[in-house]
Design a binder for these strands. Sequence first.
DNA 1: CGGGCAGTTGACCCCGCTCAAGCGCGGTGG
DNA 2: CCACCGCGCTTGAGCGGGGTCAACTGCCCG
Lengths: 233, 233
Amino acid sequence: MIEKEKTPVCEFCFINNPIFKNLTNDEADVLSYVKNCNSYKKGEIIYNERTKVHGVYCVNSGIVKHYKTGNDGKEQIIRFSKKGDIFGFRSILSEDLACTTTKVIEDCTVCIIPSSHFIKLVKENSGFSMSVIKLSCVELGHANQYILDIAQKNVKERLAEILLLLNENFGINKNGELNIFLTREELAGIVGTATESVIRLLSELKKENIIDLDKRKIKLLDIKKLKNISELG
Amino acid sequence: MIEKEKTPVCEFCFINNPIFKNLTNDEADVLSYVKNCNSYKKGEIIYNERTKVHGVYCVNSGIVKHYKTGNDGKEQIIRFSKKGDIFGFRSILSEDLACTTTKVIEDCTVCIIPSSHFIKLVKENSGFSMSVIKLSCVELGHANQYILDIAQKNVKERLAEILLLLNENFGINKNGELNIFLTREELAGIVGTATESVIRLLSELKKENIIDLDKRKIKLLDIKKLKNISELG
DNA sequence: CGGGCAGTTGACCCCGCTCAAGCGCGGTGG
DNA sequence: CCACCGCGCTTGAGCGGGGTCAACTGCCCG
């Protein structure tokens, strides 16, 4: 049994994230040794946009959101990271400041791989480097897709798509509810719309028996109809 | 003198694109040998989204646009490539189909590096691989920024921003006009709006003495005001 | 000369944003 | 224990940004 508050065992993340499969046993041991660990409570900020990121983060448990803040202070959520996901590497590898703020939405434990060590691994282990490149290229593909969606789809179509994406990424619990619990404001921050619009459209989807709502718990009742809606635009 | 229609000399691109600086002389020679070259006329499609890409392309001259097509057939332009830029690597490295269609907007000559050779270089030359990672991470940063912009800025703010970006990427000719000549429809496809809206806003900017227009030639008269407009949102 | 395409302009109207008010609930302090 | 407050959620009203449609122009090219 792993106890909370103790340093998480890397093997846990190695199972969840294929990029670590490329490490030799020696490299894995060194990584376990040089990493730092930290626990964060819901609401805490791990780093702020436009600040320097000091390492690559690996999520051992919990969920964080990555968002950009608009000039009027409104959050645009770009993506989430959960168990096994790494983040911060974009900033490290492009030698740039963070382009998003990272905030905890579900208590989490993360490990921090110092930048220099991460870069060393990328340089020395071509399998690892290929995995990191692939990761960043896949993310780039997602970002491009979202540019299209947000430019051409209407709010209802985007909301339907986001619900499907959350379903894919976080799955459902035994009651059939999405395993991520967002405020209406956060949902609006993903979809790129106003909170009130999300509320109206969610209750519209509920009326149409496509989803069920219980506070922040969302149950997807009719995936096929959601797909139809999201593909209209 | 390099004649048109003849195989371009790689050194030309090596000067324009820092990723090639990492190649050894031997690697550069081999690259020159294995590459293929092609000329395309304005309007030609180099590859279509959702098809397999067979290599990484390097632009020797001309300009291409990369766009995604919405369900209603409308183009969303994601970015451009010009002299020295490479494209197609996202698809190759994420082992995915093309996520954009690539179409020529100014007659161009491009060289094609076979996928297998490009991947070999990435695996064997860590400096090259770091450059490619960096490139993809920088692009990812741009894409994230554009998600924020398109979600939160209004059309005029986005148009101003795009004009500034075109200025940065393509510069101006001796008459002070942007060195890229887009149709109103293409401009709309970048900004993510309707053609008519672009037309109205361009003539608004002209009335305000911020830009000057002569058919597809655009002169930026007041960069500072453009910046102000683009940063309002 | 005629067809077609890019560009332009006006009219219309709807999606979705904003503002305001009210509700429910949990936490805090008297 | 209750009162109060604040936050998240909900709903309604109103309106304006910008998308759509239609008509017209100018221009290129066959």
